[in-house]
Structure formats: C-alpha cells, structure tokens
C-alpha cells in the first residue's frame, strides 16, 4: 500500500536569476493517504495555488519528486497527468467549454486521459448516464443536456466542472478556491456537492479555501501554509476540535507582525 499523493522536497522558484526571483515552494513535503480530504489555508501568496499547479504539472518543478499512487509523475506535462488528476479552477469559466453543449463537455471529461480515437465522441447511451449524474447536482441541468455551457451561471458551471473532474475515478481531486467566485448561497451549495461527490466516490482530495470555517468543517485533515511551507497541520479528532481562533493564533505565531496584514485575508 502506498500513499495516494507524495510531495518530496519540492522546490519551485519563479523568475530565477532576475530581480523578480521568488522562491515560492521551499522543500515542500506532503503525504496523502487514499481517501484523505485535505483542506489548505494560508494568506495571499503563501504558495497554495503554486502547490496545486506543481501537482497538476502546469510547469516543471525545480527539484523534488511528485508521486501519485506510487507513480512518479514529476517528469510529465499537465495533459499526461490528466489520467490521475481531476481539477476545478477558481475561475468558473476555466473548467468548461462555453460553446460546447453540457453533454459534450461531460463526454470530453468521461474520456479524460484516454487516447482520443475516431470513435463517436458522444453516444446516445452516454447521454442517459450523464442525465443520471447531472441529477446528483440537483440543479435541474439533466433536462438541459443539449444546451451550451456558456448559457449557465458561474455556480452551475462550477458544479458541472466538479462533476467532470470526478469522472474516471481520478486518483486525486484538486480544488483551488473553487467556491471563491460564487455568492455565499451558491458557494455553500457547490461545497455541499463537493463533499457529497468526494464521499460517494471515495475520492482523495486537496481543497484550497480562504474560509476557515469551511476548512475546519470539511475533510479529515487541514494544513496551513506560510511562505512556501506547511507550518501547521491537524487531522481527525484534533481537526474537529479546532476553532477559527485557534487557527488565527497559530497563524500569528509564525507570521508575527505580518499577521495584522494577512488576518483580513482569512475570512471566518
């Protein structure tokens, strides 16, 4: 039995050798077991998105290793990591193709990471399956399968993206502030759907959020990042006992005087 995700001493520096040089990930280590649902918090610029981008393979890391379910994926570009990883972006527009129908988007996702052949791309039989899975969302989208995704609201698009990311049983689901661009009510709905899908399919997930309450209430583990490192982590019972004030205190311990600046960025 090996871990579902392993980050081993991962380093990433942007703009190396220029005055804009920035060492963002510093000897980052993280291990996730199968079924772990880890929430990630930290101030702006802590490196949360950078960590997720490193795992997804947006660019190569400078050093260290990234393993998914025992497979070393460090040397693979993003599209070759797709068989292992489902992604939902912060921007609701980024996860779906607006001019394609809802069904066509789902059909593309149902083939994530598979070779694209000259077989038919969206069969009648599939449409039935998609209708079933859209029902899970509870948004009435199952009756709009032939409509273009561009007609949907941000929240609906994010929900569809979530569904797409969960197809094909990804080894890892990466969620980067995927509810941040939504109004509070829609954000809650999308978060509920997230929890349901992760639980139903026993997915292993990594979710970045600025909402500390959500971070505490969601998943079985929580990590706090600061300047490219994980500075605090809590799991299971310890995590359940956490309060927002605990997290604020923890944060001020390491961040020191910068605390007052960053505090505003972490919402209760």
């Amino acid at each position: 039995m090996c871990a579902m995700l392993e980050l081993k001493n991962v380093n990433k520096t942007f703009n190396a050798g220029t005055i804009n040089e920035k060492h963002v990930l510093k000897d980052l280590n993280l291990t996730m077991e199968e079924g772990d649902f880890v929430t990630v918090i930290g101030g702006n610029g802590a490196g949360k998105s950078t960590m997720l981008n490193a795992i997804a393979g947006v660019w190569p890391v400078d050093s260290g290793a990234i393993l998914v379910d025992g497979n070393n994926i460090t040397g693979l570009p993003d599209f070759k990591r797709a068989p292992y990883i489902g992604r939902v972006f912060q921007d609701p527009m980024m996860g779906t193709a607006p001019d394609l129908q809802i069904g066509e988007n789902l059909a593309l996702a149902a083939r994530r990471g598979k070779p694209r052949s000259l077989r038919w791309g969206f069969t009648k039989k599939e449409a039935e399956n998609y209708r079933e899975s859209l029902k899970i969302l509870g948004l009435g989208l199952e009756d709009r399968i032939t409509q273009k995704v561009g007609l949907l609201s941000g929240g609906q698009r994010q929900a569809v993206t979530l569904l797409m990311a969960s197809y094909q049983n990804p080894k890892l689901l990466l969620l980067d502030e995927h509810t941040a661009a939504l109004d509070p009510k829609t954000a809650k709905k999308v978060l509920d759907i997230t929890k349901q899908i992760v639980a139903d399919q026993h997915l292993t997930a990594l979710m970045v959020t600025h909402n500390m309450k959500d971070a505490i209430a969601t998943g079985n583990r929580l990590i706090m990042m600061y300047e490219g490192r994980i500075i605090f982590e809590a799991a299971k019972e310890d995590k359940k006992k956490l309060t927002v004030d605990d997290l604020m205190r923890k944060f001020s311990e390491v961040a020191g005087e910068e605390f007052s600046n960053d505090q505003a960025l972490l919402t209760r």
Partner: peptide
C-alpha cells in the same frame, strides 16, 4: 474553445 480545460482533460 477552452485550452485550459482541454489540458486538464488530457488533450
């Protein structure tokens, strides 16, 4: 239509 999504889907 959406290069970012396409990459994430393994295209």
């Amino acid at each position: 239509n959406n290069p970012d999504m396409s990459k994430a889907l393994g295209i």
